[in-house]
Simulated assay, not measured.
Amino acid sequence: MLIGGHGRRQSGMGDEFWQYRPAQAGDPGRAIDWRRSGRSDGHYVREKEWQAAQSVHLWVDLSASMSFTSGKAIPPKSDRAALLAMALSILLMKGGERVSLASLGTPPRIGTLQLRRIAEGLSQQGEADYGAPDARLFLPHARALFLSDFLGPIEAIEDAVGMASDRGISGVLYQILDPAEEAFPYQGRTVFTSMSGTVRHETLRAGDLRDRYLERLAERKDHLSRIAHHAGWRFATHHTNGADLPALLWLYEALEGPR
């Protein structure tokens, strides 16, 4: 198979066998598979499956929410998202894929200059509490990856995935959470403040909120999973205290796997 190539289920350029067909007038002699032809009375041509490079759109949530970290030894969600997006872009381009960063509003490209653009785009930081993907510029039949905590309004995620799916785009929703957001370890008097500072909530009994919070988080994950399932996408959650290499390999496999 061509590196980075994806089978199109029709004959054309490629290395993978597609089918035998009877030789026709105009076929060059070198195209005839003499071994297959020797088993019958006719001449047969061995066709290969057409393969082409794939376009991949990356949306990385650059909102204030993604800058959260619960400890000095744990990277912010934005750092982990940027690291995965950059490493994945390099892997995909080495495989011949064209990649774009949705926030740049430019088409998928390949090469060192495109990697530099993506790196610069990932260094930006939004001011809003939560980000929302925009799939309007995604190419039909491409692939897409959304990297976010997905803690903001879920309707925006649902709309973007629906729009992409309608264009024949397959993809991945990859949720990145800080371990504290998963475990809710807070007790006693606690002040919760949004990363932009626009929302503030103080409680004297934070532990009493834990069960309700975990229930809401489970509901959010289930909703994201159903959005992905209905669109033929994949969904997974990654925690910032976890290893980045297994996450990168999973994402690469998820995007490069069968459609």
Score class of each variant (00 low, 15 high):
76 P>R: 15
77 K>Q: 13
79 D>P: 07
79 D>A: 12
79 D>Q: 15
80 R>C: 05
82 A>C: 04
83 L>V: 07
87 A>Y: 11
87 A>N: 12
88 L>N: 09
89 S>A: 15
90 I>R: 15
91 L>H: 13
92 L>N: 05
92 L>W: 15
94 K>I: 04
97 E>N: 15
98 R>M: 09
99 V>Y: 14
102 A>G: 01
103 S>W: 06
103 S>P: 00
104 L>Q: 05
104 L>K: 03
105 G>S: 01
105 G>N: 07
108 P>R: 02
109 R>P: 06
109 R>L: 11
109 R>A: 13
109 R>N: 05
110 I>Q: 12
113 L>G: 01
113 L>V: 00
114 Q>T: 09
115 L>V: 08
115 L>C: 05
115 L>F: 14
116 R>Y: 12
118 I>W: 08
121 G>E: 12
123 S>E: 15
123 S>P: 02
124 Q>G: 00
127 E>W: 05
127 E>S: 15
129 D>M: 07
129 D>V: 07
130 Y>M: 03
130 Y>R: 06
130 Y>W: 14
131 G>I: 03
132 A>Q: 11
133 P>Q: 08
133 P>K: 05
135 A>W: 06
137 L>H: 11
137 L>Q: 13
138 F>M: 11
138 F>D: 04
139 L>I: 12
139 L>D: 11
140 P>Y: 13
141 H>S: 01
142 A>S: 15
142 A>E: 07
143 R>L: 09
144 A>H: 04
145 L>T: 00
145 L>R: 01
145 L>Y: 06
146 F>Q: 01
146 F>Y: 11
147 L>K: 07
148 S>C: 05
150 F>S: 06
151 L>I: 03
151 L>R: 10
151 L>W: 00
153 P>H: 03
154 I>Y: 02
156 A>F: 09
158 E>L: 06
159 D>T: 11
159 D>F: 02
161 V>A: 09
162 G>S: 14
162 G>N: 12
162 G>K: 14
164 A>Q: 09
167 R>W: 10
167 R>G: 06
167 R>P: 10
174 Y>K: 07
174 Y>T: 02
174 Y>M: 08
174 Y>N: 04
174 Y>Q: 03
175 Q>I: 08
176 I>G: 02
176 I>Y: 06
176 I>M: 09
177 L>N: 11
177 L>F: 01
177 L>D: 15
179 P>T: 03
181 E>A: 04
185 P>N: 08
186 Y>A: 10
186 Y>W: 13
188 G>T: 10
188 G>F: 06
190 T>W: 14
192 F>I: 03
193 T>F: 00
193 T>N: 01
193 T>Y: 04
194 S>A: 14
194 S>Y: 02
195 M>P: 01
196 S>D: 13
196 S>N: 11
197 G>V: 00
199 V>E: 15
199 V>G: 03
200 R>P: 10
201 H>C: 08
201 H>P: 04
